[in-house]
Amino acid sequence: MEIVKLVAEIKTKISKFKSEGKTIGFVPTMGALHEGHLSLTDISVQNNDITIVSIFVNPTQFNNPEDLSTYPRTIEEDLEKLSAFKPDLIFIPEVKEIYPEPDSRIFNFGLLDQVMEGKNRPGHFNGVAQVVSRLFDIISPDNAYFGQKDFQQVAVIKQMTKDLKLSVNIVPCPIIREKDGLAMSSRNVLLSEDQRKNACKISETLFKARNLAAKLSVSQLKEWVVEEINKNIYLSVEYFEIVDDTSLEVIKDWNEPNNKVGCITVQVGKTRLIDNITF
């Protein structure tokens, strides 16, 4: 497991791997690694000759400066956790390496970045597209691995890859949960003890909602989920939407075709937690 900080250096190493015909798997992260990130690394190691993990807190995807400043940074712990999975390279660049010049590109994803997280965090997905496309340009991976907890982000990255005609296979991977059901997130460490105890109400409610879908209309179920979570004094629902899993269009009737996903964001104190469930 080798640490690389410079773009020129990692490109040289990747060029050598490519010349040897080796497949490259890539796991982009912002650090503060948990079992979800490690599961992506494990899948990549099993399915590629070379696995590269990046750790980079991308400033262009934060529309709230406080969120950027408080985002957990735990490099030493991250490296220790990764060592057990033996990825080949860890790419830890400075901001000037990723953005030697300001990135002024504006992406158009249509509805994909106008609803849910896109609506509530203007510019967020444009920043995600900037950094992921830049990392893809540097790493040139065959396969890139993303967690399904960030469901909307995966949809945006798939579209970006298609729009830019990149030959990268996007591999969505299952949500990894804590024992009490809470979706693993780097932001979970920001919760107080009481907030953490109550945060599991989010996934608990989503699991119940899946069972209630046969009895309630879409609008009734959405109302029930919001009311059920908001009963808890530690939690406040920002949005809960049931959408088409490809277009992200809001579902109004269970009889509509295609798969359906319930996506939620809940404010827990000053921390935003996201989760989703398939119906």
Rank of each mutant, 00 (worst) to 15 (best):
residue 1 M to K: 08
residue 1 M to S: 08
residue 2 E to N: 09
residue 4 V to I: 11
residue 4 V to H: 06
residue 5 K to T: 15
residue 7 V to F: 02
residue 14 I to P: 02
residue 15 S to R: 14
residue 15 S to H: 14
residue 18 K to S: 09
residue 22 K to L: 12
residue 22 K to N: 11
residue 25 G to Q: 08
residue 26 F to T: 03
residue 29 T to E: 10
residue 30 M to K: 05
residue 30 M to N: 06
residue 30 M to A: 05
residue 33 L to G: 03
residue 35 E to N: 13
residue 38 L to A: 11
residue 39 S to T: 14
residue 39 S to P: 13
residue 41 T to D: 11
residue 45 V to H: 03
residue 47 N to W: 09
residue 53 V to D: 03
residue 53 V to G: 02
residue 55 I to E: 02
residue 64 N to V: 04
residue 64 N to A: 04
residue 64 N to T: 02
residue 64 N to Y: 01
residue 67 D to C: 02
residue 67 D to I: 07
residue 67 D to W: 03
residue 68 L to C: 05
residue 68 L to W: 05
residue 76 E to I: 09
residue 77 E to Y: 11
residue 78 D to L: 02
residue 81 K to I: 10
residue 82 L to M: 04
residue 83 S to P: 07
residue 85 F to A: 07
residue 87 P to Q: 08
residue 89 L to V: 11
residue 90 I to V: 01
residue 93 P to V: 04
residue 94 E to G: 11
residue 96 K to F: 12
residue 97 E to D: 10
residue 100 P to F: 05
residue 102 P to C: 07
residue 102 P to K: 08
residue 105 R to S: 14
residue 106 I to A: 08
residue 110 G to H: 02
residue 110 G to S: 03
residue 112 L to S: 07
residue 113 D to Y: 03
residue 114 Q to P: 12
residue 116 M to G: 01
residue 117 E to Q: 05
residue 117 E to W: 04
residue 117 E to H: 02
residue 118 G to Y: 01
residue 121 R to F: 07
residue 123 G to Y: 09
residue 124 H to R: 13
residue 126 N to C: 13
residue 127 G to L: 14
residue 128 V to T: 15
residue 137 D to W: 15
residue 141 P to T: 13
residue 141 P to K: 15
residue 142 D to P: 09
residue 143 N to Q: 15
residue 144 A to M: 09
residue 146 F to Y: 06
residue 148 Q to L: 15
residue 150 D to N: 06
residue 150 D to V: 07
residue 151 F to N: 08
residue 152 Q to G: 02
residue 153 Q to F: 05
residue 153 Q to M: 07
residue 155 A to Y: 09
residue 157 I to F: 04
residue 159 Q to S: 13
residue 161 T to G: 09
residue 161 T to E: 10
residue 162 K to V: 12
residue 163 D to C: 10
residue 163 D to H: 07
residue 165 K to W: 13
residue 169 N to R: 11
residue 170 I to H: 06
residue 173 C to F: 10
residue 179 K to T: 14
residue 181 G to V: 09
residue 184 M to N: 10
residue 188 N to E: 06
residue 193 E to Y: 10
residue 194 D to M: 11
residue 195 Q to N: 01
residue 196 R to S: 02
residue 196 R to K: 00
residue 199 A to T: 00
residue 201 K to S: 09
residue 206 L to W: 00
residue 212 L to P: 00
residue 212 L to W: 00
residue 216 L to Y: 03
residue 218 V to Q: 01
residue 220 Q to S: 06
residue 221 L to I: 01
residue 222 K to M: 06
residue 222 K to S: 01
residue 224 W to P: 06
residue 226 V to Q: 01
residue 227 E to N: 12
residue 227 E to R: 14
residue 229 I to N: 02
residue 234 Y to C: 15
residue 236 S to E: 14
residue 238 E to S: 14
residue 247 S to L: 15
residue 248 L to S: 06
residue 250 V to Q: 14
residue 251 I to V: 09
residue 253 D to R: 11
residue 253 D to G: 08
residue 256 E to V: 03
residue 256 E to N: 00
residue 259 N to K: 13
residue 262 G to S: 09
residue 263 C to M: 09
residue 268 V to C: 02
residue 272 R to T: 06
residue 273 L to G: 03
